[in-house]
Amino acid sequence: MTTDRTNAAPPAEGGAAPRPAPDATADEKELRRRRRRSWRYRMDTKASPYGFVAPFFLFFGAFGLFPLLFTGWAALHRVRLQNPGEMEWAGLHNFTRLLSDEFFWNALANTFTIGILATVPQLAMALGLAHLLNYKMRGQNFFRVVMLTPYATSVAAATLVFAILYGRDYGMINWALDLVGINPVDWKNNTWASQIAISTIVIWRWTGYNTLIYLAAMQAVPRDLYESAALDGASPWKQFLHVTLPSLRPTILFTVVVSTIGATQLFGEPLLFAGSPSGGNQNQYQTLGLYMYEMGWMNFNLGRASAIAWSMFLLLILIGLAYWAVSKWITRSTGGRRSSR
């Protein structure tokens, strides 16, 4: 085939095709066959990559790009849910008003604090658990599967259960707190308590999953790094600190980003926690996603909802850029370290 490619693609292809002579020999037939094949071959190599990516971009264009652009367009208008076809130009009004919209900033701040409350303990625990699971032990698989089961539970189911467990007067958590002499906490109405409660739902669902990712990465750490560290007299804790953690840096960064994206888009947990899109009677735990939903589907204001959605998008782009920059930096520094060794 390689030879085929070099000698059977004459530039004369586009020229007059040899008219099949009545006394065409088998040789000529073969030649034509080869030529046709090579043309097909070249078309194949040229076009097939596009063919392979086309389905993705087709669907992405229809259901990803179009809504993206359209939302941007709608954000520049007054549009109401009752009549989405009727748009009235509003310029940047929907965006500029966000700047002075205390509820937007509140939602942004909540998204941020819940994001921190949910992500930091989650990843820290996952790291610790992965470290433990990396020990030689009985029932390895049992532990791993069990840790992953919350991941299979839907946001809706998990939130329903937690909402009941977190009940103020009759919830199990307050009942347990009462046993140890702590006053009941109003998990729904108190700002910090409600944000912590919602964070625990996220933590519960995702810790196991991240644990497995860390565990996989830990098992890929070259063993001789530990051996030489042990030779230098490093304690297990020091080994974890100086060998495991640095080797896991890219993985950690990756999980941080995925969790951050998830946190920015947090929606189901706060919506179902008390069953209202206002996220608490004073919007104590209303996230950006929830605020957008309330604006669009409770207040019927699609224009403003679109503007909120776009600011979420811009926020994520910023996060993405930061991720990209940091990951470049980490690869460089990791690579440098590697080559210097």
Binding site: G64, P67, L68, T71, G289, F313, L316
Partner: peptide
């Protein structure tokens, strides 16, 4: 595209 929040596309 991975950065696009799912909420964004909902309206259109």
């Amino acid at each position: 595209t991975m950065m696009v929040p799912p909420q964004l596309g909902v309206v259109p």
